[in-house]
Design a protein around this nucleic acid. Structure first.
Lengths: 238, 238
DNA sequence: TCAAAAGTGTTCGATATACACCCATGC
DNA sequence: GCATGGGTGTATATCGAACACTTTTGA
């Protein structure tokens, strides 16, 4: 009787967002096994270790992926459907990548953000990683497509709660236009640019710099930066 | 090497909110083992079965607890600290309740809501269940106190997103005053009653009934009901 | 007639939305 | 001089917050 309780492996899977070509992209990695011809992509993830918290496992995955130690991340859901790992190809991959007879796998999904201009010095584990536009995500193994879908809802919630995290998707110096396009990409709708300027002006933690764009064939845009200290002061004062 | 991946049991724990005496309460159950004198309470929960999704496990726990089959519930976080089940008393309880040598336990926390006037016909499993005011929760095993704490934040988020769920905490017929006190309890602040009347009036799915209170020693309050169909129509039209 | 809770409107400030033209730059 | 994107202000609607008195009922 007691044996019917699940005794299982637990993994974390990370949806890492980046912003490129005015679009949201996510990081996908190549699976270890090659199936000829087809790119065989998945979300970066890993089984968790014995003495490891899930949050730590997610940090570890991201570090192995990007070389960045303490990326912002947010757990958003545990996926545990009994048949999420039933596809024969997925079962086989589990056998090769981890060990045979993993009959079931529960995963905890995380959201994270990364500047795409950051060089990803991934730590040997992944053959290849690539940014993939969110509207152009191929079919992924397990329930990774569903995880991606839900992560899009979650990223909006995250921003409502912590407006600062959008700046993790932009370079240190950015233009209003970049920020504007980022918001449009995240909310998937067009946002009036004049109202947007007002909105940014109201963010006391977005600081205008003297510096402007150079060598652009139109009026040069001013650069701005995100002031973390001002943001935190504001947050704690509320 | 591969053996260092976690291979573990997974449980669900449910924070069930009720509304009584103008306060939020949560349902606690008595652990199976008695420690003399002290009430030994915990959140209702269970290990999950082999072929069971976590959501289903949570539904099962709630059914065993209340006799209600499809309660609204919301997964809100996976708790997986390696030392969440390190307390000797907790280890011993796990041994007795489930089986020896559960060295680690990951849990997925759920939020749910229940009318306290509903008779809880709990299905034999729990010796005793009791409603406990949220401000008066005793020390609980594992990290259940933290789970309770986070559930309070989560219930607010849930209401923002799905205003209808508050009505699961009230009887079918309720007064504005009850609804008002419920909101005050959830947000833990006083809310201006006139503004609140306006707010309720703007909820097209809260329907005034002809019926009023009887035998009260003050002006009788009108009853209202929640109209689920009107609510759903509104939701889908947006 | 008193105690206790029910019910009711207006004003103000803040915030979101809609909307169109001139500016700077490189080619 | 023209194409390209940068930058700006005003008017209106909506929402939330503040605020005090009258009504109904049973005891």
């Amino acid at each position: 009787m007691k044996t019917s309780f699940i005794h299982t492996y637990v993994s974390v899977d990370c949806v890492v967002f980046g912003f490129e070509d005015d679009k949201l992209n996510i990081l996908l990695v190549q699976r270890n096994v090659d199936r000829k011809g087809l790119k065989d992509l998945k979300l970066p993830g890993s089984l968790i270790y014995n003495e490891e918290d899930v949050d730590d496992a997610a940090h570890r995955v991201l570090f192995e992926l990007t070389g960045i130690r303490r990326m912002s991340l947010k757990q958003f859901r545990c996926f545990a459907s009994p048949d999420r790992a039933n596809d024969p190809g997925d079962v086989k991959w589990l056998d090769v990548a981890y060990q045979p007879n993993i009959n079931r796998l529960i995963t905890v999904a995380y959201l994270s953000l990364c500047k795409v201009d950051r060089k990803l010095n991934n730590i040997s584990k992944y053959k290849q990683t690539e940014w993939c536009p969110i509207d152009d995500v191929p079919q992924l193994p397990f329930d990774h497509n569903q995880i991606v879908k839900e992560s899009l809802i979650e990223i909006r919630r995250w921003i409502e709660h912590s407006p600062s995290i959008v700046f993790e998707l932009l370079p240190q110096k950015f233009t209003i236009s970049q920020l504007h396009k980022l918001y449009e990409a995240i909310y998937n709708k067009s946002i009036d640019i004049r109202n947007f300027h007002k909105k940014v002006a109201a963010m006391s933690y977005v600081i205008a710099l003297e510096e402007k764009q150079k060598d652009v064939s139109h009026r040069a845009a001013r650069y701005y930066k995100f002031d973390k200290k001002a943001y935190n002061k504001l947050k704690t004062s509320i």
